[in-house]
């Protein structure tokens, strides 16, 4: 199982709702809808479909949900492999 702590991540927003995460990520020009359980950086994305993931330059931005703290928006830079996978899945 993956662990967020092992990633060079930045928290963009914290303790938000899944709808707020979706709305925020919709503002990015390059965005993808993934299914619940989509694997990114060895993490499974939790959420209500459609779950939005955005690409911003060399960064990928995705929602990360914890039972007690709600949803966080996480940015991981230099994410070429995950960006390629997202682009390839479209």
């Amino acid at each position: 199982m993956g662990c967020l702590e092992s990633l060079p991540y930045e928290v963009i927003m914290s303790k938000i709702t899944f709808k707020e995460a979706r709305d925020f990520l919709s503002k990015y020009q390059e965005k993808y809808d993934v299914q619940p359980g989509y694997r990114i950086f060895d993490l499974n994305i939790i959420g209500v479909p459609p779950i939005r993931v955005a690409v911003d330059g060399d960064s990928v931005i995705f929602p990360y949900t914890k039972p007690c703290h709600g949803t966080f928006l996480i940015r991981v830079r230099e994410a070429a492999d995950e960006i390629a996978r997202l682009r390839g899945s479209k």
Binding site: P36, I46, G47
Partner: peptide
């Protein structure tokens, strides 16, 4: 968060 887990 619970809603997100239920949907998943």
């Amino acid at each position: 968060a619970g809603i997100s887990y239920a949907a998943t």
